[in-house]
């Protein structure tokens, strides 16, 4: 179980003024700014859960993950990961977790991934038989066969990311922190990694905390999300509920046998888009069923589909709502 209580991290960032004058002034008087990156964050994650940790850039996600993985000492508050205090960085804790960062790599750049894997086998004291079995599994799941013996520098970003995941999972961590694991990858590779993470979570029961800016990752992997902005938690709960609460309308896409006049659609909901014979309507969830029934009887509908508004819209709405109003100048 992951238990986080009033976790706070304050950075002291030196403030450097531009130009020669600023540099000279900095020699005598150094200004230090206090930045509260994470501010009294609390949450609990049950074993085996896969939780999305979301927020705009600079919201405090990575700082929180760093404190959870023991890389940063909290300024105040506490973290317990399966009974371990992360920043003590005891062997028991480090063998329990893995942190995979989309923008940093543990693979040795000039050597083939297999060398990093072998090194990890020794460092994590992995039994040779277990190592072979886990490696075989991961190689099959991630389709790494051809990559193991090529120098890392010659692999594509997606291939490297698959090998990074493999290196991080060899010791079978119970907790996996994923910091933007799909960043910069093409759509097909994103889907491959997403599928792998979902299967890994189901098969091993590992607890996963994921930060990402790709809403497809969130939809596919995280029934629960924690939203963080300006260092504080803005929402913690089911993804469905967040969507329903933030954008209470469902999106109904209609294809009609003939292009309709906009006024014919107005009684059914808010017309979001009309292009030729395709119309997109926003319909309140509570009246969805009767509205669809009426649509089907009143209009010449050839096709109809219902879905939630894109998660990007939900996030935009949440974070806009949390932004303090601009100064009326």
């Amino acid at each position: 179980m992951i238990h986080v209580q009033d976790l706070t991290r304050v950075y002291h960032v030196p403030h450097k003024e531009p130009g020669l004058r600023g540099a000279l002034r900095g020699l005598f008087k150094r200004r230090v700014e206090e930045v509260r990156a994470v501010d009294r964050v609390s949450f609990t994650v049950e074993p085996g859960a896969c939780v999305g940790f979301l927020g705009p850039n600079g919201a405090g996600k990575t700082t929180t993950l760093k404190m959870l993985s023991g890389l940063l000492h909290p300024t105040s508050g506490s973290v317990s990961i399966f009974g371990h205090t992360p920043h003590a960085r005891k062997r028991g804790f480090l063998t329990t977790i893995a942190l995979v960062m989309g923008q940093k790599q543990q693979l040795i750049w000039d050597l083939p991934p297999r060398d990093t894997f072998d090194l990890n086998r020794a460092i994590y004291h992995i039994d040779p038989a277990d190592y072979r079995r886990t490696l075989d599994d991961l190689v099959a799941l991630l389709d790494l066969g051809a990559l193991l013996d090529r120098p890392t520098r010659n692999l594509s970003l997606g291939e490297r990311m698959k090998c990074e995941l493999c290196a991080a999972l060899l010791h079978r961590p119970r907790v996996l922190f994923l910091d933007e694991p799909t960043i910069g990858l093409d759509v097909a590779m994103q889907a491959t990694l997403r599928e792998f993470i979902r299967d890994y979570n189901r098969q091993t029961g590992a607890t996963i905390l994921l930060t990402t800016h790709y809403m497809n990752d969130v939809e596919a992997l995280c029934p629960r999300v924690i939203l963080i902005d300006q260092g504080t938690v803005r929402y913690d709960g089911a993804l469905d509920r967040l969507v329903a609460d933030t954008l209470p309308d469902k999106r109904v896409t209609l294809r009609l046998t003939a292009p309709p006049p906009p006024e014919a659609l107005a009684p059914f909901g808010h017309l979001q888009r009309l292009e030729g014979d395709v119309a997109v309507l926003l319909v309140p969830r509570q009246t969805l069923q009767p509205t669809i029934a009426r649509l089907l009887t009143d209009l010449p509908v050839a096709d109809l589909s219902v879905d939630d508004p894109p998660l990007e819209d939900v996030m935009r709405r949440v974070f806009l709502r949390n932004t303090p109003p601009a100064d009326p100048a």
Binding site: S69, G70, L71, Q105, Q106, I123, Y124
Partner: peptide, 9 residues
């Protein structure tokens, strides 16, 4: 990049 070394036991 010391981060990655600190994550290992």
């Amino acid at each position: 990049s010391l981060t990655l070394r600190l994550l290992r036991p």
